[in-house]
Computed example of a mutant assay.
Amino acid sequence: MKARDIALNVGVAIIGLLVLFPLLWMLSVSFMSTGEAANFPPPLIPNRWTLDHYRDLFVNQGMGRYMVNSLALATMATGLALLFTVPAGYAFAKLRFAGRDRLFQLLIGALVIPAQIGTLPLFLMLKSMGLVNTYAGALVPWLASIFGLFLIRQYALSIPDEMLEAARIDGASESQIFRRIVLPTLTPILVTLGLFVFLGSWNDFLWPLIILTDQSNYTLPVALAALSREHVQDVELMMAGAVITVAPVLILFLALQRFYIRGMLAGSVKG
């Protein structure tokens, strides 16, 4: 192996270690005894490993309920986003209708508008509909994102028109073409978009904080922020809560990264 290759590998390893170090230290601190992380210099590994903080979170702080809330909300957001976005993205890519290109350009132009600008009008609209402090209200921003529409549309452009025309000549209806040809072809980008939506919904803090007023409906990020106000000095407990919040989505991402990478590289930027 050449010296340059060795140097490159060492550099990549160092960068990877620097990136992973905060996560590894967070995990280590979560197993420390109360107050141990406040020592100087901060210890890297616990002197005595303990699960007391995790036990406290689930037994006394109700973290199990918040985890179920986050899981339910993220799962529903992912399913509904795919349900609405995938047919729309395919229609913009392969179906002809009046004003298609103009409408798509208008939607893409809306991407430059910060999402926070629409927070107040959306909240007032949902309040008038009686959807404040409901999961239905929390799900609204995820139903049909413009970015997801763009992602599906760009990938669907890679589907050969000849394949669709051959199916139509054979007598297949549009719904049959969509179910039997389009959806299997779009599998990598469906997983990619689903992962985006799930991670975004799971990690979202601002909108659930605004729309969910009842503490029993809190998601993990909101519950962890509320808990930090009461236990700001308990670093070990906060780190345990952070591990509970991060670990599920990290495991999910690692399990699906093969589909994610394929979806991002195979066709999501075509067109």
Rank of each mutant, 00 (worst) to 15 (best):
G64M: 00
G64P: 00
R65F: 10
Y66Q: 03
Y66K: 00
L71I: 11
L71P: 02
L71E: 00
A72N: 00
L73T: 07
A74C: 05
A74M: 02
A74P: 05
T75M: 09
T75L: 12
G79I: 12
G79F: 12
L80P: 05
L80F: 14
A81M: 04
L82F: 06
L83H: 02
L83S: 07
L83D: 01
F84T: 06
F84K: 00
F84C: 11
T85I: 00
T85E: 03
T85S: 08
T85Y: 01
T85A: 05
A88W: 01
G89S: 07
A93I: 09
A93H: 06
A93W: 06
L95S: 01
R96I: 01
R96D: 02
F97H: 07
A98W: 14
A98T: 13
G99R: 08
G99I: 10
R100S: 08
R100I: 04
R100W: 08
D101L: 01
R102F: 14
L103K: 02
F104Y: 08
F104A: 07
F104C: 06
F104G: 02
L106G: 09
L106P: 03
L107W: 10
L107F: 14
I108M: 14
I108C: 09
I108Y: 10
A110Q: 13
L111A: 08
V112I: 12
V112N: 07
A115T: 14
A115I: 14
A115F: 14
A115W: 14
I117V: 15
G118R: 11
T119D: 13
P121D: 04
L122Q: 15
L122N: 11
F123C: 03
M129H: 06
M129I: 08
M129E: 01
M129C: 10
G130S: 05
L131Y: 11
L131E: 01
N133L: 12
N133E: 08
T134P: 06
Y135L: 10
A136C: 09
A136L: 15
G137S: 10
A138R: 02
A138S: 07
L139G: 09
W142K: 09
L143S: 04
A144S: 13
A144N: 10
A144L: 15
S145P: 15
S145Y: 11
I146F: 04
I146L: 09
I146H: 05
F147I: 11
F147K: 06
L149P: 05
F150H: 03
I152S: 02
Y155V: 06
Y155L: 08
A156T: 03
A156C: 04
A156Q: 04
A156P: 03
L157T: 12
L157N: 08
L157D: 08
S158N: 13
S158G: 10
S158F: 05
I159T: 02
I159L: 13
E162D: 14
L164S: 07
L164Q: 10
L164D: 05
E165H: 12
A166F: 07
A166H: 03
A167D: 08
I169Q: 06
I169S: 03
I169T: 11
D170C: 07
D170F: 08
G171T: 05
G171P: 07
S173V: 00
S173Y: 03
S173T: 14
E174L: 11
E174Q: 13
S175H: 11
I177H: 10
R179F: 12
R179I: 13
